[in-house]
């Protein structure tokens, strides 16, 4: 009987994922009510539980896809993969008030540029102080501090070694996780209340995954505004990383 159940859960992976996520959401809402009387959003707990489960999955299976490495839960990979994630993000655009978005367009673009250059500088400086003194490694790790996609794309373009590329991916993933956890905690400090603030946040905090999960855990209505800007983050980073930022770094440190 157990085998039959296992067979059905595996064969219907996506449906199993709906059930599992539904249970996690229910649990999170209860935790939010019981522990914080609803002050910390249920979805903040849900994202946090998700990351915790991903860690457990990684430790137990030695894989790279968190819980999805369990064959039984492989459907989570489809549900949380790029296809459905982007589909759902695009759908949130239905809630955007075009007038509000237009008012904050310029500051959104400014923050997008700052959000690329500032993390890059910090990442490159940390890399240098850790002994990665050549321009290629500094650029690659700096690009990883922008997003975990910009890092490897930049590294591959300028010929970085694979351990440096791995390090740049790790940097980007750590940053995304920090944004996911930190945003709801720091929302008041950052003043995340309005569409304009969400767009500034989306430009600076980068990574669609970090921004969207962070905003979702803060105020669901802010998500489309943040995502609208954040989605350009990876593109701008991949554009500037192997070109302007690499040339600037090489000019400063040589070779």
């Amino acid at each position: 009987m157990f085998e039959a159940l296992q067979k059905e859960l595996t064969a219907n992976g996506l449906v199993t994922a709906f059930l599992v996520v539904g249970i996690v959401m229910w649990l999170s809402v209860q935790l939010s009510r019981l522990l914080t009387r609803g002050r910390v959003h249920g979805s903040a707990f849900a994202v946090f539980i998700g990351l915790g489960l991903a860690w457990i999955g990684g430790v137990m299976t030695g894989g790279q896809k968190g819980l999805a490495d369990f064959p039984l839960l492989a459907g989570l990979g489809l549900m949380g993969g790029a296809m459905l994630r982007d589909f759902a993000i695009v759908a949130t655009a239905f809630e955007v008030q075009p007038g509000e978005a237009r008012k904050a367009g310029l500051i959104g673009a400014v923050s997008l540029l700052l959000g690329t250059v500032l993390p890059f500088i910090i990442g490159a400086l940390v890399a240098r102080s850790a002994g990665y003194t050549d321009a290629i490694s500094m650029t690659t790790i700096g690009a990883g501090a922008v997003t975990y996609i910009v890092g490897p794309v930049t590294g591959a373009a300028i010929g970085a070694s694979s351990d440096v590329i791995a390090l740049s991916i790790a940097t980007g993933v750590v940053k995304a996780v920090m944004v996911m956890i930190g945003t709801p905690l720091l929302a008041r400090f950052m003043g995340l209340k309005t569409p304009r603030s969400a767009m500034i946040f989306g430009g600076l905090a980068g990574t669609v995954s970090g921004v969207s999960a962070g905003l979702a855990a803060t105020d669901r209505r802010l998500v489309p505004y943040g995502a609208l800007i954040a989605t350009f983050h990876t593109g701008v980073g991949c554009l500037l990383g192997p070109s302007l930022l690499y040339f600037a770094t090489r000019a400063l440190v040589g070779g």
Binding site: F18, G22, A46, Q64, M79, G80, A91, V173
Partner: peptide, 15 residues
């Protein structure tokens, strides 16, 4: 469905 999808995404990160 956006938030549930994000939760699934979080659960499949290489933490």
């Amino acid at each position: 469905m956006y938030i549930p999808v994000v939760v699934a995404m979080a659960a499949t990160q290489n933490v």
